[in-house]
Amino acid sequence: MNQSVIFADAISIDGKKQLLKLVAHQQGMRIECVLSFARLQQLCKTPVNVDNAASLLEGVRFEVEELAETLIEEDAFDEWGRIEI
């Protein structure tokens, strides 16, 4: 695991867009990472909604952070400068 990418513990949930937002930091740069409810459901094999999204993320957080870290290292940023997991 590359320790140059650090993830904050806090997440935010956008119920309208059905997204979770995580923040990573790499060499002083703040990177927003987004994870759709659909992708989270694929990872945890459980239906996701606003009420359970945060707790389901915690169950697969290590895997999500590994995926995000790989995408960051590959410079796979979207047009808004975010990483879409």
Rank of each mutant, 00 (worst) to 15 (best):
M1K: 11
M1W: 07
N2L: 13
N2C: 08
S4K: 11
S4E: 12
V5Y: 01
V5W: 03
V5S: 02
V5D: 03
I6P: 04
I6R: 00
I6L: 07
F7N: 03
F7C: 01
F7A: 00
A8P: 00
D9V: 03
D9M: 00
D9W: 01
I11P: 10
S12K: 06
I13M: 02
D14P: 13
K16E: 15
K16V: 15
K16T: 15
K17S: 14
Q18M: 12
K21P: 14
K21S: 14
L22S: 00
A24I: 03
A24V: 07
A24R: 01
Q26P: 08
Q27L: 12
Q27S: 15
Q27W: 14
M29H: 15
I31D: 08
I31Y: 05
E32Q: 08
E32S: 14
E32H: 13
C33T: 01
L35M: 10
L35D: 01
S36C: 04
S36H: 04
F37V: 01
F37R: 00
F37W: 04
A38T: 02
L40S: 06
Q41I: 04
Q41F: 05
Q41K: 08
Q42L: 11
Q42Y: 08
C44N: 12
C44L: 06
K45Y: 08
K45T: 14
K45M: 08
T46S: 12
P47C: 01
V48A: 02
V48R: 01
V48S: 02
V48I: 07
D51E: 13
D51F: 10
N52W: 07
N52V: 03
N52R: 04
A53T: 13
S55Y: 13
S55H: 06
L56M: 06
L56T: 04
L56D: 09
L56E: 09
L56S: 07
L56I: 11
L57M: 11
L57W: 11
E58P: 01
E58T: 07
G59I: 09
G59H: 10
G59Q: 13
G59R: 14
V60A: 14
V60R: 06
V60S: 01
F62C: 13
F62G: 10
E63V: 09
E65M: 02
E65P: 02
L67K: 08
L67C: 14
L67V: 09
A68L: 15
E69I: 08
T70W: 08
L71C: 13
I72M: 11
E74N: 10
D75A: 14
D75K: 10
A76M: 05
F77Y: 00
F77P: 00
D78L: 02
E79Y: 06
E79M: 11
G81V: 02
E84Q: 00
I85L: 12
I85W: 03
